[in-house]
Amino acid sequence: MKIPYSINPGRHRALELLLSRHSPWPLAGPVPSDEELAVVFAAALRAADHGRLQPWRFALVRENALAALGDAYAKVALTMRQDVDPERARTKALASPMVIAVAARLDVQSKIPEHEQLLSAGAATMNILNALHMMGYGGFWKSPPGGPEGPLRALMGFGPTERIVAMIHVGTAKEESRSPMKTDPSGFVSEWQGAEAHVL
């Protein structure tokens, strides 16, 4: 997609990076440094947040803790369908050198609808992915085994009011790849001109 040249050059570059974001796989090292991770999480906190509830929690998994995550995945597999292989589940947890679990901490007493709190956690997830991409790393969004409220939640230390919305696999793409998705949004966008225009 062509970006208008009237846009400030610095912002122009940022948009170029945003439009090139994709989910590379497989991922290997290197992974972000502690300084880079601080920026990644700061970007996550810029997510839209109705009511300023800050309904996000993040669990960083790296190095030796990846083996423990593999154990947790295997335990979850044993609680699922009989055709789920625990060792295969363990392998999935070890498929990248770093994982960031994102959970939504729901405030059920708040006037802010639950779905908005969940969407805010999703927005934080997307900010993480965008920040990783802009730094030259890859991020791949996967669902938690067993679902958002499954046994992995407690195994990872999240509370009963929290839901795991994403397991972000982090690393560097092993090979150059490009997004297979089309960048033309015309097939997804319409212009609403008022209710009267759609009265049957």
Rank of each mutant, 00 (worst) to 15 (best):
A68E: 02
A121T: 05
H133E: 08
I128V: 14
W56V: 12
Q82M: 06
A77R: 00
T91G: 08
I100N: 07
G51S: 07
P86K: 04
L106C: 09
Y73M: 11
E63D: 15
Q54R: 15
S120D: 07
R90P: 13
A103G: 12
V76C: 13
R62V: 04
N127Q: 14
E114N: 07
N64Y: 00
L69T: 00
Q54T: 12
L94G: 13
S110A: 14
A123K: 04
K75P: 04
A124K: 03
L66I: 00
L132N: 11
A131K: 05
M126N: 12
A93E: 01
A48W: 01
A131Y: 00
L94I: 03
T125D: 13
V76G: 12
N127R: 06
S110T: 04
A95N: 06
Q117Y: 07
V61E: 04
T125R: 11
A95R: 02
V76L: 11
L132D: 10
R81S: 15
A104G: 10
L119C: 13
V99L: 06
G51C: 04
I112G: 05
D107Y: 01
I128Y: 02
V99T: 15
D83P: 09
G122S: 15
H133W: 05
A93R: 00
V61N: 06
R57E: 14
M98I: 09
P97G: 09
A74M: 09
H115E: 12
E116F: 05
N130I: 04
D71K: 03
